[in-house]
Amino acid sequence: METFLTLLFSGLSTAALYYLLAAGLSLSFGLLRVLNFAHGAVFVWGGYTGMFVYQLTHSLALAVLAGTLLGGALGWVLERTLLRPAYGNIVVQVLTTLGAFYVLSEAIKIPFGPDQVGVGVPAFLHGAWMLRGVAVVKVNVLLVSVGLLVWGLGLVWLTRTRLGLIVRAGIDNPEMVMALGIPIRRVFTAVFAAGAALAALGGVLAGQYFGALSPDMGLQNMLNAFIVVVVGGLGSYNGTAVGALLVGLIGAFASYYLPSQIVGAVNVLIMALVLIFRPEGLFGEKEVVV
């Protein structure tokens, strides 16, 4: 029972991390019909920015703020330069965002080097609480709370605000929204930047979670986020959350019972099964055009 609960908590925290990355991917896909292959690089940039700011200021709040803002700015620039000229042309967008991933992942090595670096973690996040033999790691509590907070705020934003209404309408029928005189291109930019900001926030928290960062962790985490999005259904808000839970929990239990190399393969296996039996994902719409 103790093992089960410990694994459950650790699975929930990886699920929260995956969720932060996957939410932006899923939302930009739902609205913009863009698969953003630069997402993992934004994640890494957020992580390194957080690490750097924490080193300077020893304030986790400032680190989170700086990382998130930088991610949002990167997203804004990417949308303006790479995506905007090519809406409707999926091939070009997929290729250019992958190119951006490559450039950003290499560029982060200039100031911080190609190897893994340790990340400063504030004292109040060290260690774990023991509750009746179950280890509750403090960093994990932070991750899960941020994940829940982002999910909840996003839900309120989508269902209770005007912008959220426009976004939902845009997912269903962008032409109609444009015909109503709403500048949907500006909404595109905002949504894409927000998604990138979430990825960068995930990067800052990942630094705290692993206690270390390396330039190549972007690719692995981005792939896991893609898997989450595919499992949940591209463009489905709650589907992404369920997908993150599923992949996070299965990963936690698999890494306990199986050799570590197989765990990566387990995720891809889940994705392959979903794609074969339900290509639109567990909660996706039937007709998705990528």
Binding site: Q220, L223, V268, P279
Partner: peptide
Amino acid sequence: RVKAGYFAMVTLAISQ
């Protein structure tokens, strides 16, 4: 079974 963007992702995951 899948559309273009998905396939890019799946092949990337397999090589990884």
